[in-house]
């Protein structure tokens, strides 16, 4: 994906803290190695309708997400956000229309799509490392170790999940999602249960990891400020239809209270 999405406006002026795809010099974080990147997959929804009984939750939805884009899907509860997410990862199938991840039509669970749930969903009887490598497979220990290092929990692999804080558990869940190098990472309001400080820490972590690895990210949230802080593009879902589709051309990393950001938040809120 990398080149297709290269120019991120304003990142040259970005202060220290998070790494940047073009490897602008940072005293704190060295530029990411090329090997850290893996290919993101594009996601396409073609006239997708999903009904439960005779109640349509999504109505003839069209959405095109290029590889490597960070999209936030905003909407009220019951607006079809979570349904959209379950269709993309193959937990549910569309009533009509088609969903594509890369070139593959979604017809069941997609191995290249990973989902970060609202709650961490760690198996309490597996140690942290074993939770990260839950699918096992060859070389899973090394991969899980690397993923834990990535989320800043390198030394917690041998702990039981029950001794971790809420934010740490969610970071383990993130490591578990990253371990298989997914083309698409779906984030289903994963920060909702966290306190404000931990939440903004998680925002920075997600932003850094996404910039480093280059996967496609779809964030479901009802928090407009969060959407504007993280995403390249915000899609508002209202009653199963796209009510607004706007790109967020703000420099990264973003301060949440700039005038442009607030103006954008106002526009999005009006559409929700």
């Amino acid at each position: 994906m990398s080149e297709a999405f290269a120019p991120r406006p304003g990142s040259a002026t970005a202060p220290a803290q998070s790494a940047d795809i073009r490897g602008t010099f940072r005293p704190a974080a060295p530029p990411p190695e090329p090997s850290l990147r893996w290919a993101g997959s594009p996601v396409r929804l073609d006239g997708v309708t999903k009904s439960f009984g005779d109640r349509p939750v999504l109505r003839r939805l069209n959405l095109d997400i290029p590889a490597g884009q960070f999209v936030a899907v905003v909407g009220r509860s019951g607006g079809g956000k979570t349904t959209l997410m379950r269709l993309v990862c193959g937990l549910d199938l569309a009533t009509s229309g088609e969903v594509f991840v890369g070139d593959t039509k979604v017809n069941g669970l997609m191995p290249q799509v990973r989902l970060l749930f609202q709650d961490p969903r760690l198996a309490p009887w597996q140690r942290v490392l074993a939770n990260v490598g839950i699918a096992r497979g060859p070389g899973w220990r090394e991969a899980a170790d690397a993923a834990l290092r990535d989320v800043g929990l390198a030394d917690r692999g041998r702990d039981w999940p029950s001794v971790l804080s809420g934010g740490q558990k969610q970071r383990v869940a993130l490591a578990r999602a990253l371990v298989s190098r997914p083309g698409v990472l779906l984030l289903d309001e994963p920060f909702g249960a966290l306190d404000a400080l931990t939440r903004s820490e998680m925002h920075r972590l997600i932003e850094r990891i996404w910039t480093e690895h280059g996967f496609t990210a779809v964030l479901i949230t009802h928090d407009v400020a969060e959407a504007v802080a993280l995403a390249d593009r915000v899609v508002v879902l209202r009653q199963g239809e796209v009510a607004l589709d706007v790109s967020v051309d703000l420099p990264r990393p973003r301060a949440s209270a700039t005038t442009e950001a607030l103006e954008l938040q106002r526009r999005i809120l009006a559409a929700v």
Partner: peptide, 21 residues
């Protein structure tokens, strides 16, 4: 926990591993 079972399916555990783990 249903959520754990759903997680295990999304993360590609085959039925045997899902049962044992």
């Amino acid at each position: 926990d249903r959520g754990l079972v759903e997680m295990a399916r999304v993360y590609g555990l085959p039925p045997g591993a899902l049962f044992l783990r």
